[in-house]
């Protein structure tokens, strides 16, 4: 679990690990944001970026790394549009501080391999498992994880374990069909 080689958080601003001023419960001494230099691996590529300590992985992907395929739908962990894989597990990038990322991240931009779509991407096209497409990147990453977790054996399991990804256009039935189409291909290859 200690894959520190993937990431280093170093200081770009004031002292790291500064202890809070004692006895000043509600008076904030200064608002100056802490700047951090973060090394992270996204889609296999090592990236170094200086960020505000408050920056989420989502905002960093979209605004600092130009990876706008990951979408913001609520910013509070209620919609799943920002789902990415970290260390192969699906997580919400809106509730992840970029400084706290310890393992390689995969976004929608990292699924295509040498011009060939991932089986789940292809299945989403074949089943028309999208309409506006805004939730689609999150749906696809969530679906990949759902299959890998072993939570896609039945239609009922798919429905339960995909419930963290809202689709307002309601392409749901086609999303289930896409997962059913992609699952054997993923498990085979």
């Amino acid at each position: 679990m200690q894959r520190r080689d993937f990431l280093k958080v170093t200081l770009a601003g004031p002292a790291l690990g500064r202890l809070p001023p004692e006895g000043e419960a509600h008076s904030r001494q200064e608002e100056a944001p802490t700047r951090l230099v973060v090394d992270l691996t996204v889609n296999g590529l090592a990236q170094r970026v200086e960020v505000d300590a408050r920056a989420t992985l989502l905002d960093t992907l979209r605004h600092r790394l130009g990876l706008t395929g990951t979408k913001k739908g609520c910013d509070h962990g209620q919609c799943g549009a920002c789902t990415v894989l970290i260390g192969g597990r699906r997580v919400l990038s809106c509730l992840t501080l970029v400084a706290a990322v310890r393992k390689p991240a995969t976004t929608i931009e990292g699924l295509e391999k040498e011009g060939v779509l991932h089986p789940v991407q292809q299945a989403f096209i074949d089943q028309d498992a999208l309409q506006c497409g805004y939730c689609t990147p999150g749906q696809i990453l969530s679906a990949i994880a759902c299959i890998e977790e072993g939570h896609a054996e039945t239609r009922a399991a798919i429905q339960e374990y995909m419930s963290g990804n809202l689709c307002r256009c309601a392409a749901y039935p086609h999303i289930f069909a896409a997962i059913e189409q992609a699952r054997p291909l993923m498990l085979k290859g």
Partner: peptide, 21 residues
């Protein structure tokens, strides 16, 4: 027939209003 912009949408390359800087 398939949705003509589906590839852009499943790869994250379709750019929405909020994707521009």
């Amino acid at each position: 027939y398939r949705r003509v912009d589906a590839v852009l949408k499943v790869t994250g390359r379709a750019r929405y209003g909020s994707d521009f800087d």
